[in-house]
Write a protein that binds this DNA or RNA. Sequence first.
DNA 1: TGCCTACATGTAGAGAGCCTACCTATAGAC
DNA 2: GTCTATAGGTAGGCTCTCTACATGTAGGCA
Lengths: 109, 109
Amino acid sequence: MNPDALRGHMDALLLSVLEHEPLHGYAIIEALQERSGGALSVPTGTVYPALRRLERLGHLTSEWATVAGRKRRTYRLTQSGRAALAGERSSWRQFTDAIGSVLAPRPQE
Amino acid sequence: MNPDALRGHMDALLLSVLEHEPLHGYAIIEALQERSGGALSVPTGTVYPALRRLERLGHLTSEWATVAGRKRRTYRLTQSGRAALAGERSSWRQFTDAIGSVLAPRPQE
DNA sequence: TGCCTACATGTAGAGAGCCTACCTATAGAC
DNA sequence: GTCTATAGGTAGGCTCTCTACATGTAGGCA
């Protein structure tokens, strides 16, 4: 997967995996990999800063917890995050429609 | 359209509009807009450098022409460009599948 | 005559975000 | 004791796209 291709879609991915359950960063990375059938291996250097950015934007809140001796920062969608997710889904459709219609092979005359 | 979203897909777009006919930069911009139903308004500052990059990579060749007193640089796909286009189409499918499967709304349990 | 729009190409610099590479730390298996 | 999995994080670089600007021709219109 070309790294650049993810540009501008990370927010959508992160918001989407957090839609129904709060998760911590490490679990988010695993969820992305699992849901995409192994296609998405997003490095920690991408995910952690992105989560902080989304929190700064007010789309997520986080709280620390200690589970089995390990510290976790668990992220949760805010109302604003839910709205953002809806917007991202809509944008994604428009985006794929636009690119898809250009990329579609055309019958040669 | 979020500018970042285009990241890494410009090559595919440019190669695709040049698939069946050589075009010059300005015509390429119009073709992108037309084919996408108006959704893609790619600025010249994006297209011209990208075309040069693709030429440098060997995916395009160009030649100057003068039409109605105006100079045009017309770009044409090379064999390498055709191969690259096929690769881009395949990558596009994998990419949309991966993101799409993460973004798809899931039934809440 | 002068102005505006469409046509046509290009560059410089900024900005954003993703990645690579690195660091720290605990738990449990072997 | 060492290794792997789990868990979080930062610094710096890289690349591409965008904004803004510059240049010039042709043709319509007042």
